[in-house]
Simulated scan of single mutants.
Amino acid sequence: MTRERPKLILVHEPEKACFDRLVGDGHTRERAAEIASYLAQSTDIAPDFDALADACLKRGLSFAPVELDAAASVLAGEHPGTALVWTLTDGIAYFRGGAAPALARLGGFKTIGADDSLFALCQDKFRSGAVLGALGLPVPPAGLARNGKWLVEPPASAAGWFVKPNRLGAKIGIWPDSRSLDLGHALELSRRVFLAYGDDVVVQPYVAGRNVRASFLGVAPGAGVEALGVAFVDSGADFQTMADSLALYGETGEAAKAAGNYAEPELVAVSESQPVADARIRAIAARLMEGLGLRDVFSIDLRVEADDTVHLIEFEVCPGLPCFDFRAYCRSQWDLELADAMAETAATRLF
């Protein structure tokens, strides 16, 4: 009897499926398109599927990309001993990818990534901030507002506040005026976010510094913070807006490339100019891995000041694998293109 080849199953929620569902739930088409754009990595990774299949085959695996709505039926037909589930897109509110690792656990499948409880935690910025603070990590404290009313008042801040959606999936501020110099304006932003997206907002003291992305993929078994890629992400802007995000990823990003308007932020290793900050970021990552359970694949967003003060902004259990920064990380840290890095990671878990 021929033994079934081990299989990597990549579960993802497509932009269009999300868009159609959001429109059906009453969102305007414009807002639904903006919300669904957070799933652009499903769009951006599709051209890599053939390369992923080839890279898996070279390592004795088969590869199956599976859309989220088909995940339950596909997993029902697989054997837990020969299949590995990798969830590409997360979400607990506007997106539903957090169901995939839960389905995998229900079926007894091995998984790449954190357990499903962290998929829920990282998508609620207010709750995750409370947990990160309890772990002693340098996360800015936060207030929470809904449609112009405080649920939790934010702390005082001489530098003003930063206002961002609570569950919409990213650290972005949506609009250029998301840095607020008074709390009345912060409440007005909460009304705008609620009207447009139906979400609460997190209101944190504004922290200065350069934006940093720390990326991790455990290609080699037992890899630790030494395998973390820590880079300044310099776009020329203080923070990313919805418009900035749309210009980089998914169908809008492809259109920007075709029109010659696409410009990737510059990536510069933090260790080159601020080795103390680099060491502090690796210590934060170690604490997240030990105390929170991050593993296999994740990213961390931070702000770093010139005096090496580090502010932890958020963590992600489903980093944008096909994004320019993660591809660059795979090349610099592992000397592999994305498809080979993913296939190698899966092979080390299945054999």
Rank of each mutant, 00 (worst) to 15 (best):
residue 55 A to N: 04
residue 150 W to C: 10
residue 65 P to N: 05
residue 69 D to W: 07
residue 130 A to I: 08
residue 129 G to T: 01
residue 277 A to S: 11
residue 59 R to Y: 00
residue 166 N to S: 10
residue 306 A to Y: 00
residue 297 V to P: 06
residue 42 S to L: 02
residue 117 S to C: 06
residue 333 Q to C: 15
residue 217 L to W: 10
residue 334 W to F: 13
residue 216 F to Y: 15
residue 48 D to N: 06
residue 218 G to C: 13
residue 151 L to N: 00
residue 162 F to A: 03
residue 15 E to K: 04
residue 21 R to V: 02
residue 254 E to V: 05
residue 271 S to D: 14
residue 221 P to D: 12
residue 258 A to P: 03
residue 61 L to S: 06
residue 260 G to I: 03
residue 105 R to M: 05
residue 177 D to E: 13
residue 78 E to A: 13
residue 350 L to H: 08
residue 331 R to D: 14
residue 42 S to C: 04
residue 16 K to Y: 12
residue 232 F to E: 01
residue 238 D to H: 04
residue 68 L to K: 05
residue 192 R to E: 13
residue 313 I to Y: 03
residue 47 P to H: 01
residue 256 A to W: 01
residue 154 P to E: 13
residue 39 L to N: 02
residue 340 D to G: 08
residue 56 C to E: 09
residue 57 L to G: 09
residue 33 A to E: 01
residue 265 P to T: 07
residue 203 V to R: 10
residue 96 R to F: 11
residue 13 E to H: 12
residue 257 K to E: 01
residue 108 G to C: 06
residue 267 L to W: 05
residue 124 D to V: 04
residue 258 A to W: 02
residue 284 I to E: 07
residue 317 V to K: 09
residue 255 A to Y: 01
residue 30 E to I: 07
residue 335 D to M: 14
residue 174 I to C: 02
residue 157 S to P: 05
residue 87 T to A: 09
residue 209 G to H: 12
residue 67 E to C: 09
residue 167 R to E: 08
residue 104 A to M: 07
residue 245 S to E: 09
residue 69 D to C: 09
residue 266 E to L: 14
residue 85 V to K: 03
residue 326 F to T: 06
residue 285 A to G: 15
residue 228 L to I: 14
residue 341 A to Q: 05
residue 206 Y to E: 13
residue 225 V to M: 12
residue 187 L to H: 04
residue 132 L to H: 01
residue 282 R to K: 06
residue 118 L to P: 12
residue 118 L to H: 07
residue 113 G to F: 01
residue 338 L to H: 06
residue 191 R to P: 07
residue 99 A to H: 05
residue 6 P to I: 10
residue 130 A to N: 09
residue 66 V to F: 03
residue 307 D to S: 10
residue 211 N to E: 12
residue 94 Y to M: 11
residue 277 A to T: 07
residue 346 A to W: 12
residue 172 I to W: 05
residue 221 P to C: 08
residue 137 L to N: 06
residue 323 C to Q: 15
residue 26 G to W: 05
residue 137 L to A: 00
residue 4 E to V: 12
residue 155 P to Q: 13
residue 102 A to I: 00
residue 155 P to T: 11
residue 98 G to M: 07
residue 270 V to W: 02
residue 201 V to S: 10
residue 112 I to A: 09
residue 147 N to M: 06
residue 236 G to I: 10
residue 261 N to R: 15
residue 222 G to P: 12
residue 50 D to R: 13
residue 96 R to H: 15
residue 217 L to M: 14
residue 345 T to Y: 01
residue 111 T to I: 08
residue 25 D to A: 14
residue 36 A to D: 02
residue 229 G to P: 12
residue 326 F to P: 14
residue 31 R to H: 11
residue 47 P to Y: 02
residue 335 D to T: 14
residue 212 V to W: 06
residue 171 K to H: 00
residue 183 L to I: 00
residue 142 A to H: 06
residue 332 S to V: 12
residue 56 C to I: 08
residue 10 L to Y: 09
residue 268 V to I: 11
residue 328 A to C: 07
residue 340 D to P: 11
residue 137 L to W: 01
residue 100 A to N: 11
residue 162 F to E: 02
residue 236 G to A: 08
residue 38 Y to E: 02
residue 310 V to F: 11
residue 262 Y to I: 02
residue 332 S to G: 10
residue 113 G to D: 01
residue 149 K to C: 12
residue 339 A to Q: 08
residue 101 P to N: 08
residue 94 Y to N: 14
residue 71 A to R: 06
residue 326 F to M: 11
residue 151 L to M: 13
residue 303 R to K: 15
residue 12 H to P: 00
